[in-house]
């Protein structure tokens, strides 16, 4: 872990000004910000650990807890909301057995809701590992989950 972090920091010339990009890279590497990783960053960059904790908790893009292999973000903006996104959210929560913002215990799925993705015409939208799925329905969301390896009972008639 230490060597990987050293490489990331060296890429930015060990400049404190690049703290956020460095943390983004660390997050990309480990899928979240492990406590140990932040300690290394603190030492190499000469930034107090309290400062790193501030930054890591301030931005929603950073996570201090492990995230799932697959990340699902469901848009709950106004347009998606009126088109039934909350129902889809309920279905995903039920299927994965987790609440929005949580990660499944097998570290396969992280499900969260976002407030607007800026593609309201396509609503409701579900983002799966960076890929946008528009006009989502409960059936479609089940198919996506099934593709990702989750056992889902799909009502074939729909």
């Amino acid at each position: 872990m230490e060597a990987k972090i050293q490489t990331i920091i060296d890429k930015y010339g060990a400049d404190k000004g690049f703290l956020v990009p460095i943390l983004q890279d660390v997050q990309k590497e480990f899928k979240y910000l492990p406590r140990e990783a932040l300690t290394h960053v603190s030492v190499y960059l000469g930034v107090p650990i309290s400062r790193l904790f501030e930054v890591a908790t301030f931005y929603k893009a950073f996570s201090l807890t492990p995230r799932g292999k697959h990340e699902l973000s469901l848009c709950l903006g106004t347009a998606c909301h009126v088109r039934g996104a909350p129902l889809i959210g309920d279905n995903i929560e039920r299927t994965l057995g987790i609440k929005a913002g949580e990660t499944s215990s097998d570290l396969e799925f992280t499900f969260e809701t976002v407030n607007c993705l800026g593609a309201c015409a396509l609503g409701p939208i579900l983002v799966v590992d960076g890929e946008y799925h528009g006009n989502i329905s409960i059936t479609k969301s089940n198919k996506i989950l099934k593709k990702l390896g989750k056992k889902v009972q799909i009502d074939e008639e729909n």
Binding site: P48, I49, R51, F53, E54, T57, L64
Partner: peptide
């Protein structure tokens, strides 16, 4: 000059915190 404590979160969840809400090493 030791920066042992800081803020955590933002908005309504902002609070004074030791790193990781744990014993502050510094």
């Amino acid at each position: 000059g030791v920066s042992a404590i800081g803020f955590s979160g933002r908005g309504i969840t902002r609070r004074i915190a030791a790193p990781f809400m744990d014993f502050p090493p510094d």
